[in-house]
Design a binder for these strands. Structure first.
Lengths: 210, 210
DNA sequence: CCACAACCTGACCAACCGGTCAACAAAATT
DNA sequence: AATTTTGTTGACCGGTTGGTCAGGTTGTGG
């Protein structure tokens, strides 16, 4: 009997191919949207025949759903820094850092998520109504606690969260616009640092915690 | 010889049909993206036969381009309030008000623009490089002047503009997510007011002008 | 009332799409 | 070494898409 955990050649092939496909799919979905993306293009980018994609992922939607699921998990992890913080300066500051870093390293993922939500979240509505809603409620309560303890100005916690999401993800979703306004050049390390500091400065001072 | 400015029946028909098509197209492009939108669906929503669409707009891309152009013009107008202002509180405050109002009244347009930019602005790259770049440079200079005059804290003007765009457009682009987190109900008048005030409060205090 | 131009539209088409499948190759199990 | 399971792929299919077009209708200027 085979041990499914063992590093067999089969397992290696499967893992590698799924990785190739998901990586290519993320890029194509981000660039063309769900409707504009084609399985053929994803296959070409992954270096595999199209029929092979349907062996690993039965439908286009199943592949798409898996891409979105991965992104969502990355974002949930980014909030870990939020939790253990003693106050808004550390907590929100670290959260901004983490989300800006994701926008820089995973801009395609952010775009796929944005596209999905903009089109009414046809595929991940359940995530919004369960995991994301719970997450948001929890963090809003934490922010409210900080307000009650006088650690920051009284700002509606939910609208503050929306501001954090909007500003940080903007650098991924609208990266092309920012790049164009930057003379057609991608932001340098220094410019990314400035962006991060600018966002943190305005937000933290804006909530009276700077 | 016909006077082209006269209100003829022909002119009225043309204007009305173009209006119908553009309105339907904006909605469909926003909901499905360029790739996911179909001429047939736009035609059905406009109440016209598909072939009629191609009479007024030769290709899908031409129709799309016109939709984006209209949105862009609305946004440029929103910045008028920015100009005549004596300082950041009035100028930026009014700009936030105007952009939040657009997000509320024209969410479809905002989504189409976001989609276009996210996909690398294949159709409106020239707008970004000319009109938008000039606009941005001008406002950045105005903000810098306010900083030099001591009317606000020294914040990188461009990153501040990005924050303004991000936070205000978020309420349109991610409206579905916000609605879901609001218990599945669209924001009420009062909630929109709170959103506007929250954004203004954090930003204006954040730039040391609140 | 006539002739011309603008407008309208059902029917049609080539191209492309997601998905299927049969035949085959490689690896694992017995 | 035989057999079964898993992975691979070119060829193919029904359905949909953007776009065309011929032939008709309606409005307009002379």
């Amino acid at each position: 009997m085979a041990n499914p955990e063992r590093i067999s050649k089969r397992n290696a092939i499967r893992q590698e191919n799924e990785r190739l496909i998901l990586s290519a799919a993320e890029k194509v979905f981000a660039e063309a949207g769900f409707g504009g993306a084609t399985m053929q293009l994803i296959a070409d980018m992954a270096g595999l025949p199209k029929a092979n994609l349907h062996y690993y992922f039965p439908t286009k939607e199943a592949l798409y759903r898996e891409v979105v699921r991965q992104i969502f998990n990355i974002w949930l992890h980014a909030a870990d820094s939020f939790d253990a913080a003693p106050g808004p300066v550390e907590g929100i500051g670290a959260y901004i850092d983490a989300k800006m870093e994701i926008s820089r390293r995973h801009p395609e993922g952010s775009k796929v998520w944005a596209s999905e939500v903009m089109h009414g979240a046809p595929v991940i509505q359940d995530y919004l109504e369960t995991t994301l809603r719970d997450w948001t409620t929890g963090r809003a309560a934490l922010i409210q606690r900080w307000i009650d303890e006088g650690k920051m100005a009284p700002v509606d916690p939910r609208h503050l969260l929306y501001m954090l999401w909007a500003t940080t993800q903007h650098y991924a979703d609208f990266g092309h616009q920012i790049e164009t306004l930057n003379g057609g050049k991608a932001l340098s390390d220094k410019q990314w640092q400035e962006a991060k500091e600018s966002v943190k400065a305005v937000i933290l001072r804006g909530i009276g915690a700077g």
